[in-house]
């Protein structure tokens, strides 16, 4: 009796699946004819290009062409908006950006704010990437264990990723202001208020902290996926051999997690170089220029100053682009070396 009922269910399921697949089949049927005709003309080896064409078109229009336009702007001066109206100045903007007596001291550079932006960005990246990777790894290792309410904690760590950077920065700003929650707490336990955004060190600390808080969930997820892809029998074998936990981590977990870690490091590096919105809302780049990063310099130079220096902003963007290019190349090289090994 049960078998008969199961058979009926199975038949119903098959009919429903068939009904649902019908429109899909119809679409493929309609598309088959033109694609077959095109395939006859261009040949099978060239067909992938056809499928890639829409994406390449968008990439070309919104990335590659603006890249060249930006480079062209970097070779011009003046304040006119349209390229054809702007005087050609050659590499003058680059010369201006790179004109330094001592490259280690931004004050001696002609465009001191550009160099301050570079040094601030480098400092930010060093701390942000280091601690981001470290905390993401620790969190992923913990969330990979059989702990109570694991699903809840995974959601908690991922939640800030869903928030807009501006919202994140505003929330933390309210917490950290002179009359914010944190200072209220400090006063309630007998400490003095701390003016966090007046101190360069505190401002940089909170810029790094908030950035890690906001983005860590994403990187944790990547590492968690990597941890779950490690075959459990390796751990079982290690356990049977009586291997110590630290040795298991260094000899099994870390080497097998390495590709994911590399992705996390490179993504965090690239995102670190591009840092702008969160910190701009949180600290405004201050105090002074202590948290003014390279993208803020570009934005200010191109769009905020009364004399909108698009040429100089474009030249700084090219420099930033070159840095990102080398970072990406480094990632590719590291990945290839790993694959070859």
């Amino acid at each position: 009796m049960q078998d008969a009922s199961a058979g009926e269910d199975h038949g119903l399921k098959a009919r429903l699946t068939e009904a649902a697949a019908w429109p899909v089949r119809l679409v493929f049927k309609i598309l088959e004819w033109p694609f077959a005709a095109v395939q006859r003309v261009v040949g099978v080896p060239r067909m992938p290009w056809l499928f890639l064409a829409p994406n390449l078109l968008f990439f070309g229009i919104f990335v590659v062409i603006p890249l060249f336009i930006n480079f062209a702007y970097s070779l011009t001066g003046g304040t006119q908006l349209f390229l054809q109206d702007r005087p050609f100045t050659g590499t003058e903007q680059y010369g201006f950006l790179l004109d330094c007596e001592r490259i280690t001291d931004p004050v001696t550079c002609r465009e001191d704010r550009f160099w301050k932006g570079i040094y601030n960005t480098a400092t930010f990246i060093f701390f942000q990437v280091t601690f981001m990777v470290l905390f993401s790894l620790i969190t992923a290792l913990i969330l990979n264990r059989e702990i109570r309410a694991r699903g809840f904690f995974r959601a908690v760590f991922f939640f800030p990723v869903l928030l807009s950077p501006v919202v994140v920065a505003l929330i933390w700003k309210w917490i950290l202001l002179r009359d914010g929650i944190l200072n209220a707490f400090l006063v309630s336990i007998g400490f003095d208020k701390i003016l966090f955004f007046v101190s360069p060190e505190w401002s940089m600390f909170w810029a790094v902290f908030v950035s890690i808080w906001a983005n860590m969930g994403f990187y944790t997820l990547i590492l968690l996926a990597g941890l779950q892809a490690i075959p459990p029998d390796l751990y079982e074998a290690a356990e049977m051999d009586g291997t110590k936990a630290e040795r298991v981590f260094w000899r099994i977990t870390l080497p097998l997690l390495w590709p994911n870690l590399l992705v996390v490091v490179v993504l965090a590096l690239i995102k670190g170089v591009q840092v702008f919105d969160e910190v701009f809302v949180l600290t405004g780049g201050g105090p002074g220029t202590a948290t003014q990063f390279i993208v803020q310099y570009i934005y200010t130079t191109g769009f905020v100053d009364q004399v909108q220096n698009f040429g100089l902003a474009a030249a700084a963007s090219v420099v930033l682009g070159v840095v990102l290019f080398f970072l990406t190349m480094a990632q590719l090289a590291a990945t290839r070396r790993r694959d070859d090994a």
């Binding site: 704010r113 002179r178 003016l195 955004f197 007046v198 401002s203 600290t283 405004g284 780049g285 201050g286 105090p287 002074g288 220029t289 202590a290 948290t291 003014q292 803020q296 200010t300 905020v304 100053d305």
Partner: peptide, 15 residues
């Protein structure tokens, strides 16, 4: 004057 107002942003930002 408190540095919090002038010191807490950069450039020519109004506050």
């Amino acid at each position: 004057m408190s540095k919090e107002l002038w010191g807490s942003v950069s450039g020519s930002s109004y506050l």
